[in-house]
Amino acid sequence: MILPLNIILPVICLFYQIRTSNSLSWETCNDDEQYITLKNFTMQPDPMKIPGKISIAGSIYVNKSISLPKAEVVVHKKLLIWWKLPCVNTNCMYDLCKLLHLEPSCILHSGYFNFPLTTFEIAYKPLMSFWTSGEYSAKVQLKNNKMNIGCFEFHFSVEA
């Protein structure tokens, strides 16, 4: 019995989606010299559950004192292929000084920094859990005066 292509192709894509799904992973996303290097990152629970609590911890190494950069965050969701998700604000750029309440100096001195386990509550209840659940990729580029000083890519799963 020969199955038509319109049945075989979705089945192949579904098995590929299942086979390539994974839990949290992260990596540096450029080979240039970086001022900020991510040394460790953990997230619990893994996969992330929405709604629910998420705890994160990590450590970074700063090889040169710099004023804290802005972070450009681009998120993709996997639905057979990777789709870019719209930004929360119009340009996907976040001011880390304001987010971390480090104004007015906003200087990050060289050395190792540990970020203790911090827990956040995600109260959002998705209307359609099918669209929220799945594999995600987030690329975080740290920029200081338009110069890339760090870049990390995270891959994680969400269950809604």
Rank of each mutant, 00 (worst) to 15 (best):
Cys92Lys: 09
Thr90Ile: 02
Ser110Ala: 15
Thr90Gln: 00
Thr118Gln: 07
Met147His: 12
Tyr124Thr: 08
Thr119Ile: 03
Leu14Ala: 13
Lys84Ser: 09
Glu153Gly: 08
Cys151Gln: 07
Pro47Gly: 13
Ile107Tyr: 10
Ile54Met: 06
Pro4Asn: 04
Glu103Phe: 07
Leu142Glu: 03
His155Arg: 14
Leu3Trp: 15
Met128Trp: 13
Asp32Ser: 15
Asn148Lys: 11
Lys146Pro: 00
Asn63Cys: 07
Ser137His: 02
Ser67Ile: 11
Phe156Ser: 08
Asn148Met: 09
Thr119Lys: 01
Trp26Cys: 08
Gln141Ser: 14
Gly134Thr: 09
Leu14Pro: 00
Ser157Asn: 09
Glu103Ser: 06
Leu9His: 08
Gln34Ile: 06
Asp46Asn: 13
Gln17Arg: 06
Ile122Trp: 02
Thr90Asp: 01
Ile60Glu: 06
Met48Lys: 00
Trp82Ile: 05
Asn40Pro: 00
Lys139Thr: 15
Tyr136Trp: 09
Ser59Cys: 04
Ile122Lys: 01
Thr119Cys: 02
Met128Lys: 04
Thr42Leu: 04
Met43Phe: 04
Ile81Trp: 14
Ser129Met: 02
Gln44Pro: 00
Asp95Ala: 11
Leu99Arg: 01
Leu102Met: 12
Leu142His: 10
Met147Val: 15
Val140Arg: 05
Glu33Gly: 14
Leu14Gln: 06
Leu9Val: 15
Leu38Glu: 02
Trp82Lys: 07
Leu80Asp: 09
Leu142Gln: 10
Lys53Ala: 14
Leu96Asn: 10
Pro86Gln: 08
Tyr124Glu: 02
Glu135Phe: 03
Val88Glu: 00
Leu9Cys: 09
Leu100Gln: 03
Phe156Met: 08
Trp82Pro: 01
Ser25Ile: 05
Lys53Thr: 15
Phe115Thr: 07
Thr37Met: 03
His101Ile: 10
Ile8Cys: 00
Gly150Ser: 09
Thr90Lys: 05
Pro45Ile: 03
Leu117Ile: 12
Met93Ile: 15
Glu135Leu: 10
Val11Gly: 00
Glu72Met: 11
His101Tyr: 13
Lys98Gly: 07
Met48Leu: 15
Leu38Arg: 03
Asn91Met: 03
Asn6His: 10
Gln44Thr: 14
Thr20Asn: 05
His101Gln: 11
Leu9Met: 10
Phe115Pro: 02
Tyr94Lys: 07
Met128His: 11
Gln17Val: 06
Leu85Cys: 03
Glu153Ala: 08
Val73Glu: 00
His101Gly: 01
Ile66Val: 15
Met1Pro: 05
Asn6Ser: 07
Tyr16Gln: 01
Glu33Cys: 05
Cys87Asn: 04
Tyr35Asp: 12
Lys146Glu: 13
Ile107Asn: 06
Phe130Asp: 11
Pro10Ala: 06
Glu121Met: 03
Val62Trp: 01
Ser157Gly: 15
Pro51Thr: 05
Val74Glu: 09
